[in-house]
Amino acid sequence: MRAAQVTSFHPSDPVRGLEVRDVEPPTAPKHWSVVNIHAASLNHHDVWSLKGVGLGDEQLPMTLGTDAAGVDDQGRRVLVHAVIGADGHGVGPTERRSILSERYPGTLAEQVAVPTANLVPIPDGMPMDVAACLPTAWLTAYALLFRGAVLVPGQSVLIQGAGGGVSSAAIALAVACGLDVHVTSRDARKRARAQAMGASVWEPGARLPYRVDAVIETVGKATWAHSVRSVKPGGVIAIAGATTGDPDVAELTRVFFQEIRIQGVTMGSRQDLAALVDVVHRSQIPVPIDSHFSLAHTADAVSRFVRGEHFGKIVLDVAGSSGTH
């Protein structure tokens, strides 16, 4: 079968270490299943892997990817939940938690083997490419909004940075669930897209008309000070990443004086993913897809991701490739 793999690390040029090549198909041990992948989507984790973050030379080559939708060996349409070892299903209770493409081959391939318990049914009528967007970025956005920040309809939220998978998912979910949504971006085109989705948009660092109940933070150093100054006393900053690095100043005085809660979030459970799939399907929440690529053109897809040109998810059409690139 064909798979997109990281074969060497190049922090300044991550695509250089990416190869799409023939590999041995996976086998399924007891309590595991093989999924024939129809669609997969990219995440920051794939870029970190190509840069050598979280992987060592001894683990190469490693098949990339955490998100996939496809058909399992029982003929069911399923989503893959990428966290392995969270509760022992299929791997034993003592195995430490990892995500696909760290200890086990990932989803940017024609097939992937995962614990059977990690499979979530795809509702009838939900397209494979839409489903493939949900397991990492959308699941993280769901957990940030409703488990980390514990927001309810009518409250307000600032989402730092428009365009990426997590932020675009957070905008769509927050608007659909009745939150008052504010979004920042340096890119006028991305601000326009966020505004069209129902958000109030601002340039980075702009003073909001009022302090919000919560901030969704995935940017880090470039936006942290603004996040701390934009949340109301007693509010929460839910954080799931720091793509620009750790902040130079933690703003601890303001944090304790304003009694601001900082809540870290790392994806979500299979139960969270099933709930997310249900709410997206039942409420017909639009899932922004930036572009489609074939598996053979994974390098082009990753290049677009690295350049930050995308708004929404970048999808790889694997089975019966319908990629536009």
Rank of each mutant, 00 (worst) to 15 (best):
E95H: 14
A4D: 00
S98F: 03
V249H: 14
S12C: 01
G154K: 12
I216V: 15
Q263C: 10
R191A: 04
C177L: 15
P286N: 09
P288H: 08
T244K: 05
A4I: 04
G235K: 07
G154S: 12
D73R: 04
T184S: 15
T324A: 12
T266A: 14
A170S: 15
A170F: 13
K313S: 10
D248W: 04
V47I: 15
D57A: 14
V201M: 06
D317C: 11
E110G: 12
V91A: 01
D187R: 09
H226N: 14
R191N: 01
E19K: 13
P121I: 08
A117W: 06
S8G: 11
E110P: 06
R2E: 08
S167H: 08
G164C: 11
A240L: 06
G56D: 11
T184F: 03
A275W: 06
A109D: 04
G88W: 13
V152Y: 08
V34D: 08
P26N: 11
E259K: 13
A39N: 14
M62F: 01
Q59V: 01
A132M: 09
V219M: 04
G220C: 00
G106Q: 11
K221C: 04
Y104S: 05
A275T: 12
I237G: 03
G90I: 09
G164F: 12
D72P: 05
P233C: 07
V130D: 06
A196I: 00
V157E: 04
H38R: 15
A86L: 13
S322A: 13
H44M: 10
R97E: 12
F293T: 05
G164V: 09
V212P: 02
A28W: 05
A240S: 14
S185E: 06
W48D: 07
Q59I: 00
V83W: 01
F293Y: 15
D87L: 00
R191H: 06
G323H: 02
I260L: 15
S167N: 14
V277C: 08
I262R: 01
E102G: 01
G154T: 12
